[in-house]
Nucleic acid binder design. Structure first.
Lengths: 154, 154
DNA sequence: TATTGTTATACTCTATAACTATA
DNA sequence: TATAGTTATAGAGTATAACAATA
């Protein structure tokens, strides 16, 4: 049914005083669940989800990733990348290019329209992220991102 | 196959300089995926997973949660709580008690052996968490937890 | 009428193994 | 022998609707 778990203040207070509230993996899972749901909601109109958006973002960056690298970046099995790339390819957003240095590999590169799509999507996602961090002031937000960066990118 | 995505330093460096590396939802998702996998690995021997461990933790806390509350805390559909509680009940770790204030609700409360199980599990999980945050010093870790707390607990 | 727990079901995601072509 | 991408498939997780008991 509904699963968006907007907590009333008394429930929030109870959650805040649980033993789990000090366990980073629980907090990260909760943040991830809430964040992904929100991001997916915002991306639907563009035909994207968090996963495909992430692949597209890498395909827009430099250097271009192979599928193997994508699977490591996104913590997904290589076999799952196939469907994601297929999906974006069907949208005309990315193409599979041969890797000149290893003919087994395929490099995923965004098309011009893929880059436009990414620009629009990033704007929506960034705005949504700003909202979900609204309880932090500028300094705290910067700090949080820096620490999260260190912790999440092994 | 393997999906534990231990990155080599050059790949880590590439990931660190991607546009996604500044998007909190992506970092949270990555941290959550890595953290849950690690926590699940550590909990297997006790017959628990992250989800069931989380339910057990609430059932050990005070005040005891209803299933409805659990679904909000864990950002899961109420129908999914049923199976989790069934699972813990089969382990003899929790019991469903009638809620004196609302006979529709069931309060989930840990048994004595459930509390022992939780104690053991928490020790393993905490140790694992400390490891995965090893790149932060004490002050940073405290800061990170505080900010994560604010952001994840709406 | 609305809500709690439950069941059922369809759908998505995840994990694993095997295949092919390259290395 | 090992690795990149692919396919197939089974299992786990997710979303949705409907029902009985209770509010």
């Amino acid at each position: 049914m509904s699963q968006v778990a907007q907590l009333e203040s008394d429930l929030r207070d109870r959650l805040a005083h649980t033993s789990l509230a000090d366990e980073p993996f629980f907090l990260a899972a909760r943040l991830s669940a809430l964040g992904s749901a929100a991001a997916n909601r915002v991306l639907t109109d563009l035909g994207l989800k968090v996963r495909s958006y992430s692949v597209l973002a890498f395909a827009c960056g430099d250097p271009k990733p192979t599928q193997r690298e994508l699977s490591q970046f996104l913590v997904l099995d290589p076999s799952q990348i196939v469907a994601l790339v297929d999906e974006l390819e069907a949208l005309g957003a990315v193409e599979r290019h041969p890797d000149p240095r290893d003919r087994r590999s395929k490099i995923i590169v965004a098309t011009a329209s893929g880059r436009r799509l990414h620009r629009k999507a990033k704007q929506l996602v960034d705005e949504q992220a700003r909202e979900s961090l609204h309880r932090l002031d500028d300094r705290q937000r910067a700090q949080f991102l820096e620490l999260l960066h260190v912790v999440a990118i092994d």
